[in-house]
Write a protein that binds this DNA or RNA. Structure first.
Lengths: 337, 337
DNA sequence: CAAATTAGGGTTATCGATAACCCTATTATA
DNA sequence: TATAATAGGGTTATCGATAACCCTAATTTG
């Protein structure tokens, strides 16, 4: 590998002079500057950022920890993050936690060892508290994406889960539904709690009693929907609509229903959080509270870098509002009998 | 940040002793080993991998350069790559080239400066030759994914584009189609060339003349399908089927056709390369030559790390075969008139 | 019992780049 | 003209970890 010493030797000067040319600091005559620059180009010199990071005590590396890159929401988010990071001169490491607290913990440690400049993380849940504290202890800036963690006072880019849940529930009620089930993610995550809150509050405002039998809790990325669906369908008064906490749950629910011989939306309306990238879907079907995944990525990186560069002292919570998109998976309740 | 010197001071020993405990080298008494280990845990010591990389002249960083993470094929590939990298103790940087040779070039340079251990790259096309040579010059191992580059003799994990194209064309012919158009990616990429070859050869083997008017070339990620579709439809003898070089092109084609009032597959059969993640598709519709995207990722990383660790001298080309999946987008040719 | 090992640990130089400071001609200024 | 200022560049120490080698006391071996 070519180093500044190689350049210096060829240019008949000291390494320091080369360094000054590279960083555009100090006083260098125009002629030596050009000579050195030419030699660097000619020798294909590329600075060793390990060495640089070591002395400067900072890297241009950011870390992105998400649940699963193949989840469409995170895919788009990651793309936004990478675009913005690149634009601002940073590189992006990424990893998948699969909603596992253990994987998350392991990753935080490798991230610490890489001395990344900052971390953008979708925390698994409230129990992420411990490793987030570790980041704090090491003074590594981080920004929470999509989910809050009680006890952690950090920058965050969030959706408005309560508002989105309200909109979706409101939509179902407007279609005549009264028995509205909810299949939620783990209540260990803040989004699940807010979505529940929005759902309950909207029911209440329409004088619809909250029925615990209509509440199901499963992981955001799990697919044991069959079981939950059976329970719901076997109720004395089964639901006529389902509010799924995200699109994966909704898709699993629809598959399960079809499997059991039910039609959506004829027999059951389904709505959910998060859209699917319409570019890759031929016939968009889900009625969703769409969240701006790409913006989650870009805004998250911006927020992170602001903090890294110390341009801001106070904590910032940014809320990106959801947008209701009505499609074929929800329909007017058909009153039988 | 806690360093080995901090540990050493607290443990009343030299930094070297701490280093030996960390790396499990040298001779250390069981008692000091435990004492040091305890102090490290207590102080939350995490090694500085910049310093380590600097002296060892190697990092545990790999780089993944793909066209676009939101393209479903690459999403899954990236997931496979990350899983495998993590399993083998490496971290993954990623970036999107958007099929742009300029972005690719820039990225290669930042990658060089990060002193990554290796690079996994889906080259934009034949003109990637220059920066790949730069990698070679710096002796940074790399593996080509999905596409070959003439003049570059490197490890590669490839699909069998010719075979897949043959299968798809064969399928259309079996359905009675004779006027089969092809919408290809840029011929600057090896996959586009092989797919063309498979298509042409299969036509020939059925004594169907190759008609240049039925050949369209567009970028793998571009969507000016409308224009191409208009040309095809206005031919004296328009096609009854289209072979799209990948799924994005196929989707764009279908949208364009629908927009013009044509039905798929009634008026036009469509087949293509690369499946969509069936987990996120409610009603899989495309007849595809499916490629094992996840395996592209894992095998690519394996191949790369083998080379990094110097366990293998000779160049290796791994070919992962495609699989024909017949669905609703292709149908028997309806003979009108 | 003397010599040779070895256990257990320490010293020093090094990786590549940079900060902080120093040095010497030349030029500007009083 | 004498002095101060500056242009242009060099020296040295440092970041954190490790390789290569050294050192001393205890233990083993012939």
């Amino acid at each position: 590998m070519v180093t500044i010493y190689d350049i210096a030797k060829k240019a008949n000067c000291s390494a320091m002079t080369v360094s000054k040319v590279i960083n555009n600091t100090g006083k260098i005559s125009e002629s030596t500057r050009q000579r050195i620059q030419q030699i660097m180009t000619q020798m294909n010199y590329v600075p060793n950022s390990n060495a640089r990071s070591l002395v400067l005590q900072q890297t241009k590396l950011l870390s992105l920890l998400i649940a699963d890159i193949t989840n469409p929401f995170y895919t788009t988010l990651a793309r936004g993050a990478e675009d913005e990071a690149k634009r601002l001169g940073y590189q992006l490491l990424f990893s998948n936690s699969d909603e596992s607290i253990v994987k998350e913990q392991e990753y935080i440690e490798t991230v610490l060892s890489a001395r990344v400049a900052g971390v953008m993380i979708t925390p698994v849940g409230d129990s992420s508290l411990n490793h987030l504290k570790l980041l704090e202890q090491y003074r590594i800036p981080f920004v929470l994406i999509d989910r809050e963690v009680p006890g952690v006072d950090a920058d965050a880019v969030l959706g408005d889960s309560k508002e989105g849940a309200s909109q979706l529930t409101e939509h179902l009620i407007a279609l005549g539904h009264r028995r509205i089930a909810m299949i939620n993610g783990h209540l260990e995550t803040s989004t699940a709690r807010y979505r529940l809150e929005g759902y309950q509050q909207t029911l209440r405002s329409h004088d619809i009693p909250y029925d615990e039998q209509l509440m199901m809790e499963m992981g955001f990325n799990q697919t044991n929907a069959d079981e939950h669906m059976s329970k719901l369908l076997s109720l004395k008064e089964p639901p006529t609509a389902i509010f799924a906490a995200n699109n994966l749950i909704a898709l699993a629910a629809i598959r399960s229903l079809r499997h059991k011989g039910y039609l959506v939306p004829e027999d059951m309306s389904i709505v959910c959080f998060d859209d699917l990238e319409t570019n890759y879907v031929l016939d968009p079907f889900l009625t969703v509270a769409s969240q701006p995944a790409y913006d989650f990525g870009t805004v998250g990186i911006q927020t992170l870098i602001e903090r890294i560069q110390g341009n801001r002292k106070q904590i910032k919570h940014i809320v990106l509002p959801p947008k209701l998109i009505v499609r074929g998976s929800s329909a007017v309740r058909i009153i039988t009998q």
